[in-house]
Design a protein around this nucleic acid. Structure first.
Lengths: 324, 324
DNA sequence: TTGAAAGCGATACCAA
DNA sequence: TTGGTATCGCTTTCAA
């Protein structure tokens, strides 16, 4: 790879001048500029980003920390982030944290050492202190780290209300909830939303809420158990789509017909939800849009531009399909 | 962030000495070492990776170029690559090429300018020339760029044989194939494998092979059309899982029972395939393992170590589930 | 066993 | 309008 020096030599000018035409900054004579551009073309010169980064203390790279890219929620998010970052001239370093505090901190250190300009993170375990110490713009997505930090989330409560009320409107009279992990904010909120709707129903009991782990296995088990102890259940609101699919599988195992005998609603609106048979009714999050917004916000933050709002709560929509 | 200079000053030594203890290279007195380590701890010093990269002309980063991380095949691959890279101390920059030659070249340039140590790429459009010009180790995965370049692929033909023969063994007597895009090597191979098995069957006709685009939409349409013109079909081998699921949906639309009236086999073994109802019988690729192998191979290549084999053709397995 | 200094490849200030 | 040069933070030779 040719360096700026070689370009300068070939063009018969100083490196300072080459740098000026490169960055279109400062005065450069018309003729000189042409000479330089010619040399650049001739050598197929591309500026060395590492050297640039060292000087600028910025690497035109952002970090994306997700629990696990294999979790179907995140590929769409990652795609949105990468698309948007790319549009603004940034690269993205992908990090899978497994929600592990040690790994997370290691990734943060690594990103900092690599002069990333900013970080987008989805994590339950990260603390405000960790983030602030970095001294790098960070946008939190899907899960809120701390009030005051830039955050993109969705209307979890409202979505849960919608889902639950919808099941009622569909004629369900015994509605259970498979919740996400205790302590995970969005799981707690979705559960709370469900609870608010069914609380004063005469039939409601705490045993209508069962624990899942946001994955299919846990949900299948939970549903099997649930339907055994409460055969009267005719509606399930699962806290995410994977668990809703798990519930469908469990129902299928038991020979319970979906949606005729049991209606199921999920949450997230991942691509997967439209792939099942029957297709899943779900509360969709605008995942791509959220990733896009997070990245745009991060870019503004990185450029020290005025960023009006730093907290966005995106609306969610009920998509009615065949599981209800 | 503290720099090596500050550490040197605090420890009362030169930066050269600090560098020596950092890299555990060259002579350092026991006492001196302790002083330096103390200073490092005190300042919570972390070496600046960008400066290191500039000097070394290596950035301990690898690039991963995939068509689209939202395509369900790639999250697992990406996870494998990131896990393995991380284990060896490398970061991964994620690139979505959309199989677009212009984007691909732009990413290659970017990666080169960022001094990545190596690249893992899945692409149909990339040429050997592009790769060689980079002068950076590149491993191609899932799709072969050119003989001679490090490559990880699977037994596409064999998998197609297995799938087709299996359908026959299940009693299917009219087996169709929904193929992937023309010109894409693995699609061509899978189609060829199918053809070899059914070619001399008296019932076989070219119209049993229909074009799909490796996505669900195209497959639904293709299957609808197929089943209309050939209602006698009782088995379908789809060239990937997404299309197999599309076929299931089409069958469902037409009221055709899977697997009773129509058996369906997919290819790839993505996580999705075990989520459908009925679960999909498919030819599984060891995706994670392939990503791991690709990364390990790349690491060896980057370290200029002896790499015996640079071409791996992974075996595939039939997983029998409920769609057949 | 240690330190001084020359790079790595850019940018940007200050002079000319 | 241009060039010389210090600088970013590190590694590595060469001398001491």
């Amino acid at each position: 790879m040719a360096s700026i020096k070689e370009v300068a030599k070939l063009a018969g000018v100083s490196v300072a001048t080459v740098s000026r035409v490169l960055n279109d900054k400062g005065y450069v004579g018309q003729h000189t500029r042409e000479m330089v551009e010619q040399a650049i073309k001739e050598l197929n010169y591309k500026p060395n980003e590492v050297a640039r980064s060292l000087f600028k203390k910025q690497s035109s790279t952002i970090g994306l920390i997700v629990p696990d890219i294999m979790n179907p929620y995140f590929p769409e998010l990652a795609r949105a982030v990468e698309d948007t970052a790319s549009k603004f001239g940034y690269n993205v370093i992908l990090c899978n944290s497994d929600e592990d505090k040690v790994k997370e901190q290691a990734y943060l250190d690594m990103l900092q050492q690599n002069y990333v300009n900013g970080i987008i993170v989805s994590s339950n375990t990260m603390t405000a202190e960790q983030v602030i110490k970095l001294n790098i713009p960070v946008v939190s997505i899907d899960r809120e780290i701390s009030k005051g930090l830039p955050t993109i989330v969705v209307e979890n409560m409202k979505g849960a209300h919608t889902a639950t009320r919808y099941l009622i409107s569909k004629g369900c009279s015994r509605i259970a909830h498979i919740r996400g992990p205790q302590g995970v904010v969005n799981a707690d909120e979705r559960c709370e939303g469900y609870r608010e709707v069914v609380q004063q129903e005469s039939w409601f009991s705490e045993s209508y809420i069962v624990d899942g782990d946001y994955d299919m296995e846990s949900s299948i088990e939970a549903t099997l158990e649930l339907l055994k102890t409460h055969p009267e259940i005719d509606g399930i609101f699962a806290a995410n789509d994977i668990m809703a699919i798990g519930a469908m599988k469990a129902a299928n195992q038991l020979g319970t017909k979906v949606p005729d005998e049991l209606a199921i609603v999920g949450f997230d609106g991942i691509k997967l939800s439209s792939v099942t048979i029957p297709e899943l009714t779900t509360i969709v999050q605008p995942i791509y849009e959220m990733g896009e917004k997070a990245t745009k916000m991060l870019v503004s933050l990185m450029n020290q531009q005025e960023v009006g709002q730093t907290y966005y709560k995106f609306d969610v929509d009920l998509i009615e399909r065949n599981s209800t």
